[in-house]
Design a protein around this nucleic acid. Structure first.
Lengths: 189, 189
DNA sequence: GTCTATAGCGGGATAGAC
DNA sequence: GTCTATCCCGCTATAGAC
């Protein structure tokens, strides 16, 4: 069994993605883990401490996955599809949305210390994606308007919104958005 | 002065878009309006009642605006730009995000009675937008992959995400997304 | 329609025993 | 590291006077 700290973070990650930051509680964690609230406070003194650990967890997790993808694939389309697979994983769990969306949609009630880390995470994702898009354009296998950075911003925003739409309405919406994003970069020749 | 009920809803609308549904309280309303919590309960017995009224408010507001736009413009691009102006208004208020995003990102903690209305609102927006896109394609002035419905889903999701990204990070992101959406539909000829 | 007062609950957090 | 017990606060909600 993973050590308690890790275990708490993993559980909290699930809760935050399904209930939002301000709506998940130490009591929820207590119930899920079978230990008392006070015990959780022993590992994370305040909720802000836990929030920071959580944001670091998400940032690191995204970073690691993108690194792995980069090491495994070379073709821009393969890289892009592997990135989409990450968000599809979230999608398939039905009750969750992406971490960025959770914290950003509660921006004015989430501690600044947490928001900073989320911003770093989002920037890293867009930067990575912009690299893939730039490669795709240079290689002549991807077409899209504007700069790679702008198009990365579009893709990230669209997926963030699509996961929210899909959870609240229907998965069809997520698939439609992914389809449009793919088709929007296909070369016309 | 508008009647109290309207006044409460307007204030609550601001609060919900800036603090989220579960984080805004009757106390916040009390502070903002200068009347006691109990008085607000007189107008909206429970928070769920208020939530429903709020969702109806947002749905009606969007409906009205889209109708007005439809009555005023005929050209698909004018219609599209007028729609973008609606989200830009939210954007410019800096602290707010779109109503759909607020409720959907807290999907699992918002009463089902509220979520139903939000879904109706989202569907109405996408339907209206799909009509505009269909007209644009038929008239030969807009190009995009897939069906009008799919592309409408992309646009709505992207703007929802972009407003969240922009509030938490920088307005640049919103402008980039809007730019990509416009450019992505420009005719190549 | 607004007020005071208060109930009842659940939240985050702490002290101190084991 | 986990527990029991407890504190204090803010929340939703209600009763009843004005």
């Amino acid at each position: 069994m993973a050590d308690r700290k890790t275990q708490i973070i993993d559980t909290a990650a699930d809760l935050v993605q399904s209930k939002s930051y301000s709506s998940f509680s130490y009591q929820d964690l207590s119930d899920a883990l079978g230990i008392r609230k006070a015990s959780i406070h022993h590992h994370f003194k305040t909720k802000e401490d836990l929030g920071v650990a959580l944001a670091e967890h998400f940032r690191r997790q995204y970073g690691t996955r993108l690194e792995e993808i980069s090491r495994f694939y070379e073709n821009p389309w393969d890289l892009f599809e592997a990135y989409l697979a990450v968000t599809s994983d979230i999608m398939l769990s039905a009750e969750r949305i992406c971490a960025g969306g959770v914290f950003q949609s509660e921006h004015n009630v989430v501690p600044a210390s947490v928001q900073v880390l989320i911003t770093e995470m989002m920037e890293a994702i867009r930067e990575w994606l912009a690299g893939v898009l730039a490669m795709g354009r240079e290689g002549g296998v991807m077409e899209y308007p504007g700069t790679p950075e702008s198009h990365a911003a579009l893709i990230v925003a669209a997926l963030q919104g699509a996961l929210q739409n899909a959870r609240a309405e229907t998965p069809v919406l997520y698939r439609a958005v992914v389809g449009q994003l793919r088709a929007g970069m296909r070369t016309k020749s």
